[in-house]
Design a protein around this nucleic acid. Structure first.
Lengths: 230, 230
DNA sequence: TCACGATGTGACCCGCCGGTCACCAACTGA
DNA sequence: TCAGTTGGTGACCGGCGGGTCACATCGTGA
């Protein structure tokens, strides 16, 4: 494996007017990735990806020596993990955890950000959410994949941990809570996607029409709990 | 698709002393399914499954005309959905929702039951949890699969709905909550499994050593919420 | 013991798909 | 205009794996 960033997507240290060529390539690959999403990693053929991206198959192999795997992992790192970190940057990184309301609203905004990011890149992200677990079956991919995800969880857990220490949150271990939250959002998005896209849609998975409503639902459950308060 | 129950697993309406032969077959198939779990649906070859189950490949095709797909769906219905319904039977079906403590403990027992069921059939269930989403890409499988799951969710939602009506629980829609709970448990189990089995284990996903502790963790988050109470 | 149906089998077939490589085209500098 | 270099291509290859089917084996009843 030993995933080496492909020059194709590496636009740092690149000559001036090559910029736009690189941008076009990126766009074409992103489009190809969307096609990926409909079929899953194993379902999509390299021929098809190349065709959608308007690349020759050989060209793809020029840039991704590691073949289909490296293509997949590169796009994963770029689109999925990169996007998630940007959501963390925008919502959690600078959040105050001084009061319960602060923590609550920081994570509500965070979850809302996740939903919006998802809306904007639905097919690409769906692919990785549905295929992600299968990747873990391969030790090499699992190491790469797991490492990236762990770093994300670390960042999500930071404000939780601070809030627990400050006594704002119940005394629960921060990282498991972060995992639980991310897993829950993921499960919600997958179920919701199936509702919208499946031949036989599931009923009533999500009656929420905006990212804000859905985020508020999850945040309410997580922070306030299901039990009615007097 | 039109999944017709294979006689191989259909032990109703079967002659007296064929019983034990059927039982042996079932056991062999279950063993084969465990092997399935290590590789995933697409990763496991029919040759390998047949070998593990000590069947000839042709014999498998005698019983599962639908081929690998039907084999998969039959085992799914039998092991996964059947097992989950048994957990619901044992914990939620007869639960009282009269007081907050009743609802809380019913679902805590339910989640604990899910964890125990999982412990007992780890490889088989892991297979379906990790592959489940990919199945939804095929409309036929999605219909079969989704229908079974929806009926399960219906049952999980019943006590929630009753409790909401009784004012015991916060006024949230019961089915989405049921989906959220099941998705959360699933996410937790998958992450936990990766911690135990992956080449590079994830740290601190679950510091819990017994099903009871893990169930208590999830139940606390869901019912009491993360926010500290005075 | 033989005949016949039912059950079980694995060698073989064939389509599919990831990966390769010999070739081509476009640009560059002389 | 031509030689050299870089970037791009898709026809082809090889293996892999789902599915088939002609044959073997077993159980049974005459």
């Amino acid at each position: 494996m030993e995933h080496v960033p492909a020059p194709l997507l590496d636009d740092a240290a690149v000559g001036r007017r090559d910029r736009e060529r690189l941008a076009r390539r990126r766009a074409r690959l992103d489009a190809a990735l969307a096609g990926f999403g409909e079929k899953g990693f194993e379902g999509a053929t390299v021929d098809e990806i190349a065709e959608r991206a308007e690349f020759g198959k050989g060209t793809l192999y020029n840039y991704f020596q590691g073949g289909k795997d490296e293509l997949y992992l590169t796009l994963f790192e770029d689109v999925v993990i990169g996007g998630l970190h940007r959501v963390v940057d925008a919502t959690l990184a600078t959040a105050s955890v001084a009061t319960p309301a602060d923590v609550r609203s920081a994570y509500c905004t965070f979850v809302e950000g996740l939903f919006e990011h998802f809306e904007a890149h639905r097919p690409q992200l769906m692919l990785f959410m549905k295929d992600g677990d299968r990747m873990m079956l391969d030790p090499d991919k699992a190491a790469f994949f797991g490492g990236l995800f762990e770093r994300l969880i670390d960042r999500v857990a930071v404000p939780l941990d601070a809030a627990v220490r400050a006594g704002t949150l119940r005394d629960l271990p921060a990282r498991p809570v972060a995992h639980l939250l991310m897993g829950t959002v993921r499960g919600f998005l997958v179920a919701d996607d199936e509702t919208r896209c499946a031949a036989h849609p599931r009923a009533d998975v999500s009656p929420f029409t905006t990212p804000g409503e859905a985020a508020s639902f999850i945040t309410t459950v997580f922070f306030d709990g299901l039990l009615a308060r007097p």
